[in-house]
Simulated scan of single mutants.
Amino acid sequence: MKVVAFERSLQGTGASRRLRNAGKTPAIVYGATAEPQLIELDHNALFHALKKEAFHSSILDLEIAGKSQQVLLRDVQYHPWKQIILHVDFQRVDPSKKIHTKVPLHFLNQETSKAVKQGGAVLTHVMNEVDLVCLPANLPEFIEVDLTNVEVGKSLHVKDLNLPKGVELAPHVEQENPVFLSVTVPAAVVSEEGAAAEGGDAA
């Protein structure tokens, strides 16, 4: 995704307020071997871009003064109650160095999974994103999780994820191996099944 930004020289609360009043959002881009750079972006364009999942988890082409650089969105500060973006942080990406970032999980075939259709189970998303490490060129936009054959009573851990080649779990995530999806049967379903079984025995 391409993001167009403009250089800014003034900083401070007053300067930022004037920018926002003019429909701009102050931002900064930092990292790699270059000095941090103060920039500004069109607020409305940024507001709509932030609604797209890929804007948060993909390598972005940030264009400043006609020159492009690859960046990751690292932080967004919102106004406490107004729909206003106060500030944005971008981090430059070195193509030769691995990056550590969060990538969303996309759950497929949830309604048609055996656990739901046959077992009356409820699938609980414990995590909707996962910390990954990879080279920028290998960064996936999302990780797909096929729930077709998930079993009742089973929990899926992050090590069960099918990661693309060149993509690894972040070290602390691999070590902890947390659950990202649990498959449980509600108590009401269990009691109904028990009552039905007892009724069958009585007959």
Rank of each mutant, 00 (worst) to 15 (best):
residue 122 V to F: 11
residue 60 L to T: 02
residue 155 S to D: 11
residue 82 K to T: 07
residue 78 Y to I: 13
residue 136 P to M: 09
residue 103 V to E: 00
residue 21 N to K: 13
residue 44 N to L: 13
residue 127 M to Y: 00
residue 143 I to P: 06
residue 89 D to A: 13
residue 85 I to R: 09
residue 53 E to S: 09
residue 27 A to H: 02
residue 80 P to F: 12
residue 12 G to S: 11
residue 129 E to T: 00
residue 84 I to N: 15
residue 167 V to P: 03
residue 200 G to R: 15
residue 160 D to Q: 09
residue 99 I to D: 03
residue 81 W to V: 14
residue 178 P to F: 00
residue 184 T to Y: 10
residue 38 L to H: 15
residue 162 N to Q: 13
residue 34 A to I: 12
residue 167 V to G: 01
residue 175 Q to T: 01
residue 49 A to I: 01
residue 111 E to I: 08
residue 8 R to S: 05
residue 78 Y to T: 14
residue 45 A to D: 09
residue 132 L to I: 15
residue 48 H to E: 00
residue 97 K to Q: 04
residue 77 Q to P: 10
residue 15 A to E: 00
residue 61 D to W: 08
residue 77 Q to M: 14
residue 65 A to K: 08
residue 24 K to F: 05
residue 196 A to F: 00
residue 24 K to H: 07
residue 12 G to V: 08
residue 115 A to I: 08
residue 181 L to F: 05
residue 3 V to G: 01
residue 80 P to R: 13
residue 77 Q to A: 14
residue 75 D to N: 13
residue 58 S to K: 11
residue 77 Q to G: 11
residue 182 S to C: 04
residue 86 L to M: 14
residue 178 P to D: 02
residue 51 K to Y: 11
residue 109 N to F: 11
residue 121 A to M: 09
residue 70 Q to E: 03
residue 94 D to K: 10
residue 173 V to A: 12
residue 88 V to P: 09
residue 139 L to H: 02
residue 113 S to Q: 10
residue 18 R to P: 01
residue 41 L to I: 00
residue 6 F to H: 08
residue 77 Q to W: 00
residue 173 V to M: 15
residue 18 R to Y: 03
residue 184 T to K: 14
residue 56 H to N: 04
residue 137 A to R: 11
residue 71 V to N: 02
residue 131 D to R: 12
residue 114 K to I: 13
residue 139 L to N: 01
residue 12 G to K: 09
residue 103 V to Q: 02
residue 128 N to V: 09
residue 125 H to S: 13
residue 40 E to M: 14
residue 105 L to I: 03
residue 64 I to C: 05
residue 60 L to G: 03
residue 46 L to Y: 00
residue 99 I to Q: 02
residue 20 R to E: 02
residue 41 L to G: 05
residue 196 A to D: 07
residue 73 L to V: 05
residue 11 Q to Y: 12
residue 153 G to F: 01
residue 54 A to R: 05
residue 103 V to F: 07
residue 35 E to S: 06
residue 125 H to L: 15
residue 31 G to V: 02
residue 101 T to C: 14
residue 90 F to C: 06
residue 199 G to T: 05
residue 58 S to Q: 05
residue 192 E to G: 13
residue 173 V to D: 04
residue 165 K to Y: 09
residue 141 E to C: 02
residue 133 V to R: 12
residue 189 V to K: 12
residue 104 P to A: 06
residue 109 N to D: 05
residue 12 G to Q: 08
residue 133 V to K: 12
